[in-house]
Nucleic acid binder design. Structure first.
Length: 657
DNA sequence: CGAGGGGTTGTTTTT
DNA sequence: CAACCCCTCG
C-alpha cells in the first residue's frame, strides 16, 4: 500500500496555544483559522463571524511563530483595518500591532513611496482627492475653451466619473460614454483630449489621484521584478477582506502579492457585492478558486446576529437573486418579532413615525447607540433630520457629507499645500480668489508671475488693483512666516493660517462660528502628525468624515446618538434596531437602476445588506405617495423588495393619528 | 475686471 | 442646499 504523504509548511500544531480555538470557533471558522498556506476562499454570509474568524486567524499565525510584519491584511476601509488590528492586539498583545494592513489605496500609497522610483515616480508625490481632480479638470476645460459650448458639455464632476470608470472598469473612454453617457457621445473626442491634458498635468506636477494609486501599484508589480521580489519577500501571508468589492486591478494586485507561494486568503460574500458602480466585479470572488488547482473553499453559513424572523425575510429576498455561491444562512437564535412594513402617508409622516418609534424603543431601554436608520441615498434623510432636530433627538449622519469637502477646510488646506509645493496651481488660485479685488483673471495672471519667480511668496511687487494690495501683502507675510515653519509640526502652520483666515471666513460665511469649530476639529486631527507632507497625503487618502474616528467633530456631551447612514456606509456593522426608509419604487430601487438587470440585482443585494444589519428589530417604511422632482413623476408603488421578502415573513403596521 | 444678486439646476452609492 | 450660470452694476 502506497501512502500519500502531504507536505505542509504550516507551523506545528501541538496545541500549545494560549487561546482555545476549538472552543471559541465553530467548525468552519476553525478550519479557516487553521489553514495558513495555499489559496483559500472563505465565503462568509452576513453576520457569520467573518471578522472574528480573520482576527483569530491572525492571532493563531502569530502564536505559531509567524512574524506579524509578514502578514498583510487588506481591508475596505481604514476604520475596518484599525478595528481589526486593535482586536488582534487585544487577543495576542502588542505584537498584533505590527501586522501590516490598510486599504488597497493606502497600501499602494505606502508601497509607491518606497518603490515608486522603479517607475520613475518621485517619493514625494502628492495625493489629490476627487475635488482637486475636478478643479484641475475645470482649469483644463476653460483653457481649451470647452466651457462655453452651445451644446451641453459634461460637468467637471461628470468628466471625472467618466475617467474614473474607464480606469476601474478597464474600458476605453468611448466604451464608457457609449454605455453610460450616450447623450455626450458627440463630445467624446474633446473628452479624450481633456483626459490627455489631465494626465500630463498630473505627471508634470507629481500628482497622483486615487485611481493612479492602483494603476501604478499594479504596474510596479508587473514591470519591476526587483520591486516585486522585495515586496514578496516582505509579505508572505496575504488576506483580503470584502473581496466581492474589488475591481479587476485590485484582483491582479492581490494575485501578484501572493507571489509563488500563493498564501492568499480572500474573504467575502457575493450576496453583499454593492460597489459595481465603481468597477467592483463579483466575478473576482466567484472565479477565485478557478485560478488555482488547490484552492480550498470554506463557507460560513451560521448567522450569529439576527433573529430567525429577520433572517427568513432576508433569505426570501435573496431567492429572487441570481446568486453565485448557493448558501442558506441559518441561526440558532430565537424566533423574535417579524420585521414590520409601515406604509405612511408621505415623507413627513414617515419621519414622524421613525422618530416616534425611536422614542418608544428608547423608553423600553434600547440605547440610541443601538439604533440606526438606513437609506439608499443621503438626501433621503432630509425630512427625518428636520424631525429629529425638532424633537431634540441627537444623531450622527454617515455617508454623503464629507468633512473635508466643505469650502472653509479646503481653503485652509490649500494654504498648507502651497507651503509644501509653491507651484501648486490649483491651490494658488483658490487662495488668491479669497482676496478682495481679485477674480479669475487677476489670479491667473498672478500665478503666471509666481511660476517664473524664485521667490514665490513675495507678492508685494505684483501689480493688481489698489484694493487688492492690502490682502496680497497680508497673504505674502503669512506665507513667508509659514515657510519658516515648514519643518516644524504641521499644527503650527495650521494655527498660523487659521488666524490669517479668520477675517476671510467671517466675511464669507454667516454661519462662521460653526465653521470655526470645524477648523478647530481639523487642528485637532492635525496634532497627530509630525510632518507636513504626511498630514497632507493622509488627509487626502482618508477624509475623516465622522465623529467615529475619534475626531471630535460632534459635541461630545451627547454620549448617546442615533446613527443615520447610507447602506453603503453601514456595511459590516450591526444594530439592535434598524429602520430602512424610503422603500419605494424609484427611490429604492433607485430610478437609475431601472436601466439594466444587473443594476437591479445590485439594488436587491443592497437591500439584503440593509436587512441583515438588524439583530432584533427591523422596520421597513415607505411614504404612500411622493412627488419626485427629478423625474417629475409621482412615486406611489412600494418597493418590489418588500414583496420579495415574503408576506408571511412580515407584519404590516398602520399609522393612526 | 470683479462683486453681488438671482435664478436654475440636479443630487446614488466611495477609496 | 449646494454649485453653477447669467446678469447687471460699479
Amino acid at each position: 500500500m502506497a501512502r500519500v504523504f502531504k507536505l505542509t509548511d504550516t507551523a506545528p500544531q501541538t496545541g500549545d496555544y494560549q487561546l482555545d480555538y476549538e472552543a471559541l470557533l465553530n467548525k468552519q471558522q476553525l478550519e479557516a483559522v487553521k489553514t495558513f498556506s495555499g489559496p483559500v476562499l472563505c465565503i462568509a454570509g452576513a453576520g457569520s463571524g467573518k471578522t472574528r474568524t480573520l482576527i483569530y486567524r491572525v492571532a493563531r499565525m502569530i502564536e505559531s511563530g509567524i512574524a506579524p510584519e509578514s502578514i498583510l491584511l487588506l481591508t475596505f476601509t481604514r476604520k475596518a483595518a484599525r478595528n481589526m488590528l486593535n482586536r488582534v492586539a487585544a487577543l495576542v498583545g502588542e505584537e498584533g500591532r505590527r501586522v501590516s494592513g490598510g486599504t488597497y489605496h493606502s497600501f499602494a500609497s505606502i508601497t509607491l513611496r518606497q518603490y515608486g522610483h522603479y517607475l520613475g515616480l518621485p517619493a514625494n508625490f502628492s495625493i489629490i482627492d476627487e475635488s482637486d481632480c475636478a478643479d484641475i479638470i475645470n482649469l483644463i476645460r476653460a483653457d481649451l475653451g470647452l466651457n462655453k459650448k452651445e451644446t451641453r458639455f459634461p460637468q467637471k464632476k461628470t468628466l471625472l466619473d467618466i475617467f474614473s470608470k474607464s480606469v476601474n472598469r478597464e474600458q476605453t473612454i468611448e466604451e464608457i460614454i457609449e454605455s453610460d453617457y450616450s447623450h455626450f457621445s458627440e463630445h467624446s473626442k474633446d473628452i479624450v483630449v481633456i483626459l490627455e491634458r489631465f494626465r500630463s498635468y498630473k505627471k508634470d506636477n507629481y500628482l497622483v489621484d486615487y485611481d493612479d494609486l492602483l494603476v501604478f501599484l499594479l504596474r510596479l508589480l508587473q514591470e519591476s521584478e526587483e520591486a516585486r521580489a522585495r515586496i514578496n519577500q516582505r509579505f508572505k501571508y496575504i488576506m483580503a477582506d470584502e473581496y466581492q468589492d474589488t475591481n479587476g486591478l485590485q484582483a491582479r494586485i492581490t494575485m501578484l502579492l501572493g507571489g509563488n507561494k500563493k498564501n492568499i486568503m480572500v474573504v467575502g460574500d457575493d450576496s453583499q457585492s454593492i460597489y459595481s458602480f465603481r468597477g467592483a466585479r463579483v466575478r473576482n470572488i466567484i472565479e477565485f478558486p478557478q485560478q488555482f488547482d488547490d484552492c480550498q473553499i470554506i463557507k460560513l453559513e451560521r448567522n450569529y446576529r439576527s433573529t430567525s424572523r429577520i433572517l427568513e425575510a432576508a433569505n426570501s429576498l435573496m431567492q429572487h437573486a441570481d446568486e453565485g455561491f448557493k448558501k442558506h444562512l441559518f441561526t440558532r437564535r430565537e424566533e423574535g418579532e417579524k420585521p414590520a412594513v409601515v406604509c405612511c402617508q408621505d415623507d413627513q409622516e414617515q419621519a414622524m413615525f421613525v422618530a416616534a418609534r425611536i422614542l418608544e424603543l428608547r423608553e423600553q431601554g434600547v440605547s440610541l447607540n443601538d439604533m440606526a436608520v438606513l437609506f439608499r441615498s443621503s438626501f433621503h434623510a432630509y425630512q427625518l433630520e428636520l424631525e429629529l432636530k425638532r424633537r431634540n433627538i441627537p444623531y450622527v449622519k454617515w455617508g454623503g457629507f464629507k468633512f473635508l469637502e466643505s469650502g472653509h477646510l479646503k481653503d485652509i488646506i490649500a494654504h498648507m499645500r502651497v507651503v509644501q509645493n509653491p507651484y501648486d496651481q490649483v491651490s494658488w488660485l483658490r487662495i488668491l480668489l479669497l482676496l478682495e479685488g481679485i477674480g479669475t483673471q487677476t489670479a491667473t495672471e498672478i500665478f503666471r508671475k509666481i511660476k517664473e519667480s524664485d521667490n514665490p511668496f513675495e507678492l508685494n511687487e505684483i501689480k493688481a488693483r489698489p484694493r487688492a494690495k492690502e490682502g496680497l501683502k497680508r497673504l505674502s507675510e503669512t506665507l513667508k512666516n509659514a515657510a519658516q515653519l515648514i519643518n516644524e509640526k504641521p499644527s503650527r502652520l495650521l494655527d498660523l493660517f487659521a488666524e490669517y483666515y479668520f477675517p476671510i471666513l467671517k466675511k464669507r460665511f454667516d454661519d462662521y462660528p460653526k465653521r470655526m469649530k470645524d477648523i478647530d476639529a481639523l487642528a485637532m486631527i492635525c496634532q497627530r502628525f509630525g510632518d507636513l507632507s504626511e498630514f497632507l497625503s493622509e488627509i487626502a487618502l482618508e477624509p475623516p468624515k465622522d465623529s467615529s474616528d475619534n475626531n471630535m467633530i460632534v459635541d461630545s456631551d451627547d454620549d448617546e446618538q442615533l446613527i443615520l447612514s447610507t447602506i453603503h456606509s453601514a456595511k459590516g456593522l450591526e444594530w439592535h434596531s434598524v429602520f430602512i426608509i424610503h422603500a419605494l419604487e424609484g427611490r429604492f430601487p433607485s430610478f437609475n437602476a431601472f436601466k439594466s438587470e444587473e443594476q437591479l440585482e445590485e439594488e436587491r443585494r443592497l437591500m439584503y445588506v440593509a436587512m441583515t444589519r438588524a439583530c432584533e428589530n427591523l422596520a421597513i417604511s415607505y411614504p404612500g405617495t411622493m412627488w419626485d422632482p427629478v423625474s417629475g413623476a409621482l412615486l406611489a408603488k412600494p418597493s418590489r423588495f418588500i414583496d420579495e421578502s415574503g408576506n408571511d415573513n412580515l407584519e404590516t403596521w398602520h399609522i393612526s393619528r
